[in-house]
Structures are given as C-alpha cells and as structure tokens.
C-alpha cells in the first residue's frame, strides 16, 4: 500500500534537513505506529506525504500502490485515497461543516469519475456516521472547526475520514489534547474503519493510544529516520523506559 523509500526532505526556505533517509512500508490492512521524541520529523513526514508546500524532497520516493505521490497535487493524493488527520485541524470561518464535507466528498468522487452524491444520500450517510462519533447535528452546522473543543476537532477529523473512505489514513498525533472519553470515541471510530484493504499510519507520542488502536508494527523514529521497528511490545518498552536506550543503541 504505502511505500516510503530512502526519503530525504529539507525545508524549502532554510537549509535544514528534516528527513534523512526514511524508509517504511505499510501493507494493505495493517496499522503501523510511528513513535519518537519531539523534533524527530514525524509531523514533517505527514505533511510531505499529503503534499503541503514548504518542503523539498531531495532524495528518495514515497508511493501509494506503486504510484509516486510526490508529483501529485494534494487533491490528487486525496482522490488516490490518502488522508491526513491533522494535528491542528484548521478553522474556516463561515463555511458550514456539512458544506465542507459534502464539497470534499463530491470533489473526490468527481476526480475518480464517480457520480456525485445527492443531498439526500449525503445527509443520510453523514448523519449515521456523525451519530457513531457522537457528533451532534448542531456541530455539523457550525463553521468548520470554529469554536470546537480539542476533542470535537479530532472527532471531526475522524468523521471526515469516515466520509471520505480513504485507503491510506495518516493520523498525526490525533491523541494530543484528548481526554479519556474522547480518546475512546476516536479510537472506536478508527477501529470501525479498519478493513483488509485500508491501512493506517498512526503518529503518536504516547503508547496510550495504541492500547485502543492495536498496531501491527511499531516504528521508532529519531532524527529523520526509523531507528527500530517491532511489534506492539516496542511501544510498551518506550512507555516503560523512554527513548533514551533506543537512541543510544541507534548511535
């Protein structure tokens, strides 16, 4: 599904290398977690994969089902099935959450040559999915992320994910700022979406989230590279001992 090969990325404006030969492969149906200390390049990875401006790939490649992502516009990546749940979801004043969702869903359908959803079909689906995530009808009407609490913003990201049905979901610190209940809701939402042809790349600081969303593989990232990969037990090890030993080992 997702294949990242020796990816080198620097900031466009500064001469600062952030990713330094990162390689990673997420097969279909699997959940991979990336953990790592602050500043290891986790968020940069998620932005580069989804096509945000401001980064320059100097070497290597990232592909989805064998097709390189790097030449694609952000919207083409989305239509190809890539989704990023933002660490800091963006507020858009005056644009109703529902309008936003519907525009996004139909834009992707159109890009894939599919029929757009009618209002009635769309409403039916969005209401069902919102209910599962305990998103109130009132929240669907409010402008996108405006005045949402931290938990509401993250649930809203998962709602978008559920509506857009991507094949490759990247979650950038979706657990940050969530209380226990919100964490449970978000995790349940994600678990409900797990399927043999959908993969997840879960970026997180803490092992806690991985109790709810069981990963198949855990990667430890440091200084722009994956320094160690292993099973779920690797996350527990980090939780227990911190990153110190692993970093020392890598050096």
């Amino acid at each position: 599904m997702l294949k990242i090969d020796n990816l080198h990325v620097k900031l466009e404006e500064e001469d600062k290398q952030i990713l330094k030969g990162l390689s990673l492969e997420v097969p279909a149906g699997q959940v991979h977690a990336i953990m790592g200390p602050n500043g290891s390049g986790k968020s940069t990875l998620s932005y580069v994969l989804s096509g945000r401006d401001g980064y320059e790939v100097t070497e290597g490649d990232a592909s989805l089902d064998g097709e390189s992502l790097l030449e694609m516009e952000p919207e083409e990546r989305a239509a190809a099935g890539l989704f990023l749940a933002f660490q800091y979801p963006v507020e858009i004043p005056g644009v109703g959450n529902m309008t936003f969702l519907r525009t996004a869903v139909n834009a992707q359908r159109k890009a894939r040559g599919e029929e757009e959803l009618s209002s009635a079909e769309f409403l039916k689906i969005v209401r069902e999915k919102a209910k599962e995530l305990q998103i109130s009808p009132e929240m669907l009407k409010r402008p996108v992320n405006m005045g949402f609490s931290g938990g509401e913003k993250k649930r809203n990201e998962i709602l978008q994910m559920a509506m857009l049905e991507p094949r490759m979901c990247i979650m950038d610190e979706t657990d940050s700022g969530l209380d226990v209940d919100a964490m449970r809701l978000v995790s349940e939402g994600v678990n409900a979406l797990r399927s043999p042809d959908r993969s997840f790349l879960v970026i997180t600081h803490y092992q806690r989230l991985l109790n709810h969303i069981q990963p198949d593989v855990v990667h430890i990232m440091s200084n722009g590279r994956i320094i160690k990969s292993g099973g779920p037990e690797l996350a527990l090890e980090v939780e227990e001992n911190g990153y110190g030993d692993l970093l020392a080992e890598a050096d």
Binding site: G51, E75, A79, F86, V90, E91, Q108
Partner: peptide, 16 residues
C-alpha cells in the same frame, strides 16, 4: 494558505 491546504488535502482543487 493553511485553509487552502486543508481543503485541498480533502480533495478540492485550488479554485474550489
């Protein structure tokens, strides 16, 4: 730019 990127990452083209 952040708003535009957010929209585009959800599949809308730049003009949309």
């Amino acid at each position: 730019d952040d708003q535009l990127f957010y929209c585009r990452s959800r599949g809308m083209d730049e003009e949309e």
